[in-house]
Design a binder for these strands. Structure first.
Length: 366
DNA sequence: AACTGCCCCAACCGCATTGGG
DNA sequence: GCCCAATGCGGTTGGGGCAGT
């Protein structure tokens, strides 16, 4: 066997997280923000390694997580991005607000991959498979495609220069608007992973049903294909813009699950402190702010596994501004409270969620 | 009802990268 | 430049749920 994990070395808990552990972690992070993960377990009173806490927060507890089925738009976007980026799940996830790399990876492996294979498309190269490949892969699902040089090439791209070469290759094999392609490539080359607003730089518009649509994706869908096109090349995206318009960020999504936890937390906050008018939490993935209205609306709520998905939640978040990066509360060693005026210079948004089930969570531009 | 096999997904593992001393 | 700890990331695993028998 390989080396022992940190959990084994320190005799820490492993496996599924209990609601109590979730609560502890959530309370801690919402109070003090994301800082040094290695110290989080100790400070939060958890018998877990920091790595496990980080993963739990990122994949499950984070307030900005979207839950539920992937929309058709998301599915198409994942397909398109995977064609360009390969198995770079974190980079793909960065283009899908509220989705985690793990979630997308699982979705790809459990659904999209199979869907493509059913259509006779190699999920690694996104090219139609030959009959022999189809036969081979039917017998041995992944081996044949993984051994393909093209697949290896895609998966092996690990540096910026290689990525650039990949884009160059794409650009050289298709007809495209050079200006647009350069813009898109530039964005992909320079944007960090976990940039929650990156997608919006493609001018995301969100429909009332809660799904989001980027211009590039929408126009592509409208103009080029009725469904997923395996021959689609990213460079053929019709239009792109690098100007982020916050006004377009009308609707986005907070997960019912994590939002419900947030609500539970707020209930506790209300009990513990009646003085602070609002609370802002900043972390590496962006900040969020809540005020007493949220607390007032948080009645009839408790933290347990039964309610985490089913609970109703009518809460407004003011001043969502994911792109701001501040020293975390953790770093400053104290809890920060802000008034909403603190965000006057930023495009303020509020977030409400109607967990009647059908309605998705939305950001409302103020 | 019991068993089996399959699927999904949360969580783990280990390597790569980053950053500070 | 080296070392080490922390973090990021992608591949993999294993447990629970579910359908079929």
């Amino acid at each position: 066997m390989g080396r022992h994990s940190c959990c084994v070395q320190q005799k820490l808990r492993k496996g599924l997280w209990s609601p109590e552990e979730d609560e502890k972690l959530f309370n801690y992070i919402t109070r003090f923000g994301v800082g040094c993960w290695s110290s989080v377990p100790k400070l939060a009173g958890l018998q877990r390694c920091g790595k496990s806490c980080r993963l739990r927060w990122i994949n499950y507890l984070r307030p900005d997580l979207k839950r539920g089925m992937f929309s058709q738009q998301e599915e198409d976007l994942i397909m398109s991005l995977h064609q360009v980026l390969g198995n770079r799940w974190a980079q793909i996830a960065a283009q899908l607000p509220g989705r985690t790399d793990n979630e997308i990876k699982n979705f790809w492996n459990s659904c999209l991959k199979k869907k493509l294979m059913k259509q006779g498309i190699d999920p690694n190269t996104h090219k139609p498979r030959t009959e022999t490949e189809v036969t081979d892969e039917d017998n041995c699902a992944d081996k044949a495609s993984l051994s393909s040089p093209q697949a290896k090439g895609l998966q092996a791209l690990s540096t910026s220069s290689e990525m650039e070469q990949a884009f160059d290759h794409l650009n050289s094999t298709i007809s495209y608007d050079g200006r647009v392609t350069e813009a898109s490539r530039e964005v992909f080359m320079t944007k960090p992973v976990y940039d929650p607003l990156f997608l919006f730089e493609f001018q995301v518009g969100v429909d009332q049903s809660g799904g989001y649509q980027s211009n590039l994706q929408t126009q592509y869908q409208q103009s080029l294909r009725p469904s997923y096109d395996p021959n689609f090349e990213f460079g053929s995206m019709p239009t792109l813009t690098s100007n982020f318009d916050h006004g377009n960020m009308e609707n986005s999504n907070f997960s019912g699950n994590s939002a419900s936890r947030m609500r539970s937390f707020l209930l506790n906050e209300a009990k513990e402190s009646s003085s602070s008018s609002s609370l802002v939490v900043n972390n590496s993935h962006g900040g969020f702010q809540m005020n007493n209205n949220m607390v007032e609306n948080s009645s009839n709520f408790s933290w347990d596994s039964e309610t985490k998905l089913a609970s109703l939640f009518h809460t407004q978040f003011h001043g969502i501004k994911s792109e701001e990066v501040k020293p975390s509360v953790w770093q400053e060693g104290q809890l920060h409270t802000y008034n909403s005026e603190d965000f006057n210079t930023y495009p303020l948004t509020s977030l409400s969620e109607d967990l009647s089930g059908a309605n998705m969570d939305v950001f409302h531009h103020i």
